[in-house]
Design a protein around this nucleic acid. Structure first.
Lengths: 192, 192
DNA sequence: TTCATATCTAACCAAACGCTTAGAAACAGG
DNA sequence: CCTGTTTCTAAGCGTTTGGTTAGATATGAA
């Protein structure tokens, strides 16, 4: 009976994610969101309740985004050191032209919001928990494959590489490609 | 002849730095600034011209702050690996109670503002250039002292530790103290 | 004591903020 | 073709934003 929606929640959510990713949470206005999402404020609020809730769903969408487009190789069965190194070097090489390196949305959020909003902290922790688990599994596979020592401390190493990835997100905005490459090459060498 | 100022620019600037450090740039309003700085908007604007200029001077003040209170040991003549390790472990252990770990103001700024404002980018680059030079000098001293190999690639290693420090700033908001310690212990071990 | 000059208080500005709402428009089952 | 329900448009809500201004208040050299 009702009128049908003229937009797809998933699609406009991905657009919202990109707006937050480009500008940060506070610097993103609802006016800018309605412009970039292609729907007006009424639709934003009726679908996503509030700017904060839209941001939280954007973070979740970002999690799905990176699973498909950033960490896809690392998430495949059998991914080990080769895939981890490949990802890190690729991330260091990115330095995209259009957005001029916007880093990781969740790192940006952790830096901007800190611990002042517990709902957002929950999303941030969930995201990094996922990344950490991905790293644990990759490192376990690397041990099984004999790429790294059987005595490797998986907990320590996964914490290390998570820290490196968080550093890489910031460094991608502040270092030139050569520095980034040096940073990653030593991080990777460390495990051998 | 004129009426004298009732406040000290340096003192109110340090207060402004803390407000930006706690809340980020966008989330800091001029009303909050006047409350925390203890002077009113007229005085803020007559002394610092604009919110952005006040922020830029706050970043410079932060640079002075860390020279005196954070990197003082690393900046002393003769500081080498021992001092670098000591600093990193201390930073990993901090997790302050009042502000609940606000990270590094300049890392937060790089993450929040990105490259969208060139005046701020200039300050950020200046700050990290200084840190990088500090690391270079510490590593050179460490070589001279025989703490690390004479064949150490100072450029690579200083880029690595800068990346680690940027990661540490983010990680201090997202990791628990044990993880942080693991992260740092492997970063330090890497150079040996 | 006068007086030019700078600082202070407090009210004020237009614009932008997040969010809401009344009424028109579109749909699908009866 | 109704009719109930939902979505849409567009105007509007009160509040807060960064920044300004008029006039009162100090100040210290002359």
């Amino acid at each position: 009976m009702p009128r049908t929606k003229s937009y797809d929640d998933k699609i406009v959510l991905e657009r919202a994610m990109n707006v937050f990713w480009n500008n940060g949470y506070e610097a993103t206005s609802v006016r800018l969101l309605e412009k970039e999402m292609g729907i007006n404020q009424f639709s934003i609020y009726s679908s996503f309740s509030s700017k904060k809730q839209l941001f939280i769903e954007s973070i979740r969408t970002y999690g799905e985004h990176v699973k498909k487009n950033v960490y896809q190789d690392l998430l495949m069965e059998g991914a080990g050191m080769k895939e981890l190194e490949h990802y890190l070097y690729r991330a260091a090489r990115k330095k995209r032209e259009p957005g001029t390196s916007r880093g990781c949305l969740v790192v940006n959020t952790a830096a901007e919001i800190g611990r002042s909003d517990e709902d957002i902290v929950r999303e941030v922790n969930g995201y990094f928990g996922f990344i950490r688990n991905m790293l644990r599994k990759v490192l376990q596979t690397a041990v099984a494959k004999g790429e790294i020592s059987a005595t490797t401390d998986i907990e320590k190493q996964s914490a290390f590489f998570l820290g490196v990835m968080q550093g890489l997100s910031v460094a991608s905005k502040t270092m030139d490609p050569d520095q980034l490459n040096d940073f990653i090459s030593l991080a990777v060498k460390q495990i051998q």
